[in-house]
Write a protein that binds this DNA or RNA. Structure first.
Lengths: 211, 211
DNA sequence: GTCTATATTGAGATAGAC
DNA sequence: GTCTATCTCAATATAGAC
């Protein structure tokens, strides 16, 4: 006989997982401080002591959530090494992968962004900087490769890195504030290509160039 | 005889203004929900009823704060019309003005960003979208001028607009997360110039262009 | 206008039975 | 592991004197 007396329970998922899911949704929508443990357990369809049993307290479930997410992203950054193709293609592919991963985790990312760029909301400290720096390092490395292979102009490594990171960031923010615009991966690709037309060296003529 | 028994009072500013200042600082650093009215009045060096006298409640002081800020920004956008120079210069000047205004109001902007892109934190709704759209419209207009005057490529108006807005946004975010990097107005200008090298039409040779 | 004192609600967290 | 019942404290907000 299947136990299913609440919408949240209907899928028969373990309470611990239901709590993580409801906490993610609520923290993302209302913020860390504005979300109460009462709501979390209510949405998860369990009672309070269950939350305090699996996680030590409100900070505990937040930390668990965040660590799961940051690990996923770090793993993705570490995995990006064996890619082939021209520097430009590699950058496009890299940005696309990052963006796809972000779309899959848009809820948690909304929370991360608001805490990294905004007030901490009383949430326990998490070192988002190390991730940011890793991302930056990866992009910079890809840009330097492009320079080495003469595909990019030889100067302005920093500015190129920043322009690319900026495009990623902005596309994420459109997704956060206006997902209905359908900017998405295609939008990011278009903006990156626009930036490339400035980044790419102009030694030889490029195909498709007019006049 | 001057009354000055607290650091917050020492400048002899009216309680109403002191409350607005302390609320701005606290909302920006801790977030709307995590900031308590107790803290606000404590930092301002007044007692609770003073807050409830001047502003109706916690939401009231928040709304007052926000409306003051958004009015300032709207006014700046409206004021930007009588500028001269080439489209590129006008865009650079516009972005620089925006960025300067933002630096002057970085605290309130941190709060705005976290609420616009992130969870609402239980704060009352404010229509940030109308400002975002106005900003977008202004930039798009400047881009279209550049196209009309043949200074920019004739296609990709949207992408150009987005690339420019992205650069502004990103420079703000660096200011929010890493002000010590000293990215600032110069950084924004450099990145914009990098993007321009892709936006500028390539009909004729530009001065300073090599090879 | 500004204070002291207090009402009231809701938050995080736990004791202890099952 | 999960529940009911409850503790404790801090939050928003106000009454009423000055």
């Amino acid at each position: 006989m299947i136990k299913a007396d609440s919408a949240a329970k209907s899928l028969n998922i373990a309470p611990r997982e239901r709590l993580l899911a409801s906490a993610t949704e609520l923290f993302s929508r209302k913020g860390y401080s504005a979300t109460t443990t009462r709501e979390i357990v209510a949405v998860a369809g369990v009672t309070k002591p269950v939350l305090y049993y699996y996680f030590r307290n409100k900070e505990g479930i937040y930390l668990e959530l965040m660590h799961k997410a940051t690990n996923k992203f770090e793993a993705m950054l570490d995995a990006f090494h064996a890619e082939t193709g021209t520097p430009k293609k590699r950058i496009l592919s890299f940005c696309d992968q990052i963006f796809a991963l972000i779309l899959e985790n848009i809820e948690i990312l909304r929370l991360v962004y608001s805490i990294y760029y905004g007030p901490h909301q009383g949430a326990p400290f998490i070192d988002f900087d190390s991730f940011e720096l890793k991302l930056q390092k990866t992009v910079k490395h890809l840009v330097q490769e492009g320079i080495k292979k003469k595909e990019f102009q030889k100067e302005y490594v920093e500015d190129m890195t920043w322009a690319i990171l900026g495009a990623i960031n902005f596309s994420i923010e459109i997704e956060l504030s206006h997902p209905e615009w359908g900017f998405g991966r295609k939008g990011l690709k278009r903006v990156l290509n626009l930036i490339f037309r400035g980044i790419l060296a102009r030694d030889g003529k490029k195909k498709g160039e007019r006049k």
